[in-house]
C-alpha cells in the first residue's frame, strides 16, 4: 500500500498553514484529498456528501493547524481524524432525518462488502493485520465495521445478529486484545 506523504512533510505543511500559506494546504489537498474522499464515502455512503465532508475538513485543518502538536500523534493521523470525525458527525445527524427503514436500505446495499474489501486490502506485513487476524471473526468484523463503515454498536449488533450488550462487550474485549497485541 502507498503511504501518502511522509509524516514530516505533513507536519511542515501544517506549520505553514498556521502561518497562512495557502499553497501548503493545497499541497496537503493534492496528496491526500483523493484518499480522504474515499474514506469519507465509506462512512457517509454518498460521493457528494463525502466531498462536502472533505471540503469542511480542509477548512478545519486550515483554522486548527496552529493547534497541531506532535503529542496529538502524527500529522497524518491528525488530518485523517478530522475527516473521520466530520463524516461520523454527518452520519449521526443524517440519521435523524431518515426513518430506521430508510437507513437500513441505504446502508445495507454494499456496505459490508466495503468493510471486508478493506480488510483484504490491509497491508499484510502490518502489525495491525497480524493482530486483527488473531481475533476471532466476530470481534474482527465488529471493529472493522465501526472503523471503516462508521457503524454504531446497535447497527453492528443488528448486522451480526447478536444482542447489543454482547456486541459492546465483545468489541471492548477485541479492542483490548488488539491493544495488548500491538504494544
Amino acid at each position: 500500500m502507498s503511504m501518502g506523504a511522509a509524516p514530516d512533510d505533513l507536519t511542515t505543511a501544517l506549520a505553514a498553514c498556521a502561518k497562512g500559506d495557502r499553497t501548503a494546504l493545497r499541497g496537503i489537498f493534492d496528496r491526500e484529498a483523493g484518499r480522504l474522499v474515499t474514506i469519507a464515502e465509506r462512512i457517509v455512503r454518498r460521493r457528494d456528501l463525502a466531498e462536502e465532508v472533505v471540503q469542511e475538513s480542509f477548512i478545519r485543518i486550515w483554522t486548527q493547524a496552529h493547534q497541531y502538536q506532535p503529542d496529538r500523534g502524527s500529522a497524518r493521523g491528525w488530518i485523517y481524524a478530522i475527516v473521520r470525525n466530520r463524516a461520523l458527525n454527518l452520519l449521526r445527524d443524517g440519521k435523524r432525518e431518515y426513518t430506521v427503514e430508510d437507513v437500513d436500505v441505504l446502508r445495507e446495499r454494499d456496505q459490508v462488502d466495503h468493510v471486508m474489501a478493506a480488510w483484504h486490502r490491509l497491508d499484510r506485513t502490518s502489525r495491525l493485520h497480524d493482530c486483527l487476524g488473531a481475533l476471532d471473526d466476530t470481534k474482527r468484523r465488529g471493529i472493522l465495521m465501526a472503523y471503516i463503515g462508521g457503524y454504531s454498536h446497535g447497527e453492528i449488533a443488528g448486522r451480526l445478529s447478536i444482542p447489543l450488550g454482547t456486541t459492546k462487550s465483545w468489541i471492548r474485549r477485541g479492542l483490548s486484545a488488539l491493544r495488548e497485541c500491538m504494544t
Binding site: T38, L144, Y147
Partner: peptide, 23 residues
Amino acid sequence: KAAIAASRERFLPLDDTAEPTVI
C-alpha cells in the same frame, strides 16, 4: 490525549486501504 494519538496510529493502516479517487 496520548491514548487517543496511539489509537489513531494503530488504526491508520486501515485508511491506507482506501483507493484514492480522482478529484
